[in-house]
């Protein structure tokens, strides 16, 4: 679901970037109020889960690939505002360092995966779980919420793709950016996400949440499983993150590109022409494009990319945690 550069017009990217500014502002303010130092540092670990989930590409119907995001997972652990910040930072690192997701499309990607996904997922979880006391019902609510969150985000991405030919085309009617209209983009994005990626998201969310609630419950603040009075260790979580990082090359098994993430030549072969905006558009030279290291086999490059990405996220949030208030009572539980 990472929209690359030149698939959307720069003006579309700008509009969404501007729209995200008050969202980020509100989320930063809420995180500063609700989370203490330890939880802000843990947000880096949560962001690492999201980063790693996004590296596990799964094959989707239609020959493309997709991935889970983990935004609802973070919302369930630390709140939707924290999830917005965490996923935004993860997307920033992916775009700048690994070239996954466009720079000009950063605002759009954040809107879909950092804002829509976790807020929709968390709201639906709360609506379904209500004041449910049974863990089973809460798990079902988490699964449905996370499934719905990623699908609504995919729908948003599909709409953003699909309106490009309507709004931006040349005199001959050829699209300047994404050439596929809504009638194509919506089913192409939504159906695979509903059938596969959404299920992966739900399973991953519930599984990882359960793991964290058993091994480090004091780090959960947004849901009742959290237990701030119980001391716990992050060692099992750190080991789990390490194992996930080592297993990321499984994502290489899924062949093909994600829908809407083809290269310019692939687009030309699909639609018969290269949209002008794509051919002459913005290009960013990432340090480690597509999670590869020059000179290293893909598997080694993928694992190293996972390690670098996770380490960067943990470092960034640990540094941010230094500005947070010392450990104290955290925000209200769901």
């Amino acid at each position: 679901m990472h929209i690359p550069d030149n698939y959307l017009s720069p003006s579309t990217g700008a509009v969404f970037a501007v729209a995200m500014v008050p969202v980020w502002g509100h989320c930063i303010k809420k995180v500063r109020e609700d989370l203490d130092r330890d939880h802000v540092a843990f947000l880096g670990v949560a962001a690492a889960f999201s980063f790693l989930l996004m590296m596990f590409n799964v094959p989707l119907p239609g020959g493309t690939t997709g991935h889970a995001v983990g935004g609802t997972l973070i919302a369930l652990l630390l709140g939707p505002e924290a999830a917005c910040i965490a996923v935004s930072v993860a997307l920033a690192i992916q775009a700048l360092v690994f070239g996954d997701g466009g720079i000009l499309a950063f605002g759009v990607n954040c809107f879909n995966m950092a804002f829509v996904l976790p807020f929709v997922g968390f709201a639906l979880y709360r609506a379904i779980a209500g004041k449910a006391l049974t863990a089973g019902r809460r798990r079902v609510a988490m699964a449905i919420g996370s499934w719905a969150g990623i699908n609504v985000a995919a729908l948003c991405a599909a709409i953003e793709f699909g309106i490009q030919p309507l709004l931006f085309h040349d005199a001959a009617g050829q699209a300047l950016y994404c050439p596929y209209p809504l009638a194509v983009s919506i089913p192409a994005m939504c159906i695979p996400h509903m059938l596969v990626a959404g299920v992966v998201e739900a399973v991953a969310t519930v599984a990882i949440y359960e793991f964290v609630s058993r091994t480090a419950p004091e780090y959960i603040v947004a849901t009742p499983e959290g237990d701030s009075g119980k001391g716990s260790s992050l060692v099992p979580v750190a080991v789990f993150v390490g194992v996930l990082a080592v297993l990321t090359p499984l994502g290489l098994l899924a062949e093909g590109d994600a829908w809407g993430e083809w290269g310019t030549e692939d687009v030309a072969s699909l639609v018969g022409y290269t949209p002008a905006g794509m051919g002459q558009g913005f290009s960013w030279e990432a340090l480690l494009p597509d999670y590869t290291f020059a000179g290293l086999p893909d598997v080694a490059g993928y694992i190293l990319s996972a390690v670098v990405g996770v380490a960067l996220l943990v470092i960034v949030f640990k540094l941010l945690s230094a500005a947070a208030r010392p450990a104290a009572a955290t925000g209200a539980k769901a």
Partner: peptide, 24 residues
């Protein structure tokens, strides 16, 4: 070539990430 440097960077970042914020 940069291959070993990337490996060293990954290892360095992991060690850095394991430290408290002030040490980082």
């Amino acid at each position: 070539n940069m291959a070993f440097v990337w490996v060293a960077l990954a290892a360095t970042l992991v060690v850095l990430a394991s430290r408290p914020a002030r040490r980082i």
